[in-house]
Amino acid sequence: MAKSTTMHPCDRVGIDYVETAPHRFANSVDLAVTPDQLFEVFADAAAWPRWARVIRHVEWTSPLPPGVGSTRVVSMLGGLKGAEEFLLWEPGRRMGFRFNAASEKSIRAFAERYDVEPTPHGCRLTWTLALDVTGPGSFFMPLSGVVCNLAFRRFLTNLRRYTDERFATVA
């Protein structure tokens, strides 16, 4: 029998929260794919666990294609679930979302923004993740944040590998 997951409301922050949150992580990667190909990956629920290994499952809970107001539920390692709402969806340019609710009540607010710039050989992705936590987690955030940011950089390395494989061309 499946264990039920209680969801706890998060602050309904705007996309500008990624600039003002108490804990922010921003990393970039150059990808050898077009901005439109990258957004194809973003829209593909099955792709996320392939490069962001903490993600176990993504389920769109609103009709596709995605857009502003679209929703999905993301299940992660350790049983963490986030109910997300997209605040930005500009294919080839940028996207962003926030948690409306999370299975972990210590998550006060959470948002991510993905900014994409065309380059001569594909595109450059800048991923900004922002959050605020309560309780004991807030005390450990300075140290755990360093470890988390290393994992976030690894996710972008994995994204590069995944997009290279997914969009490989035969020479």
Rank of each mutant, 00 (worst) to 15 (best):
T6S: 12
P9W: 03
R12H: 14
R12Q: 15
V13K: 06
D16A: 13
Y17D: 05
T20F: 02
A32Y: 04
V33M: 03
V33T: 06
P35D: 02
L38Y: 01
F42E: 08
A43Y: 03
A43T: 07
A45L: 04
A45N: 06
A46G: 13
A46Y: 05
W48C: 01
W48A: 11
R50I: 00
A52P: 00
I55D: 02
I55R: 00
H57Q: 15
H57E: 14
E59R: 15
E59P: 00
W60M: 06
W60T: 04
T61W: 07
S62G: 04
P63A: 15
L64C: 04
V68T: 10
V68P: 07
G69L: 11
G69I: 10
T71M: 11
R72E: 11
R72Q: 12
V74L: 12
V74S: 12
M76F: 04
L77V: 14
G78T: 04
G79D: 03
G79C: 04
G82Y: 09
G82E: 13
A83V: 13
A83I: 03
A83D: 12
E85S: 12
F86V: 03
L88A: 07
W89L: 02
E90V: 14
E90T: 15
M95Q: 04
M95K: 00
N100K: 12
A102L: 00
S103R: 07
E104W: 07
E104V: 11
K105A: 11
K105F: 11
I107H: 02
F110H: 13
E112H: 08
Y114T: 01
D115Y: 03
E117R: 14
E117G: 01
P118N: 00
P118R: 10
P118K: 11
H121W: 00
C123D: 06
R124E: 05
W127P: 00
L131S: 13
D132G: 08
D132K: 12
P136K: 11
G137Q: 15
M141K: 08
M141P: 06
P142I: 07
L143T: 08
L143Q: 03
G145R: 08
G145L: 09
V147T: 05
C148T: 14
L150P: 01
L150C: 04
L150W: 10
A151I: 14
A151E: 10
R153S: 10
R153K: 15
R154K: 10
L156T: 03
N158G: 02
L159I: 08
R160D: 09
R161Y: 05
R161G: 04
Y162Q: 01
A168G: 00
V170E: 13
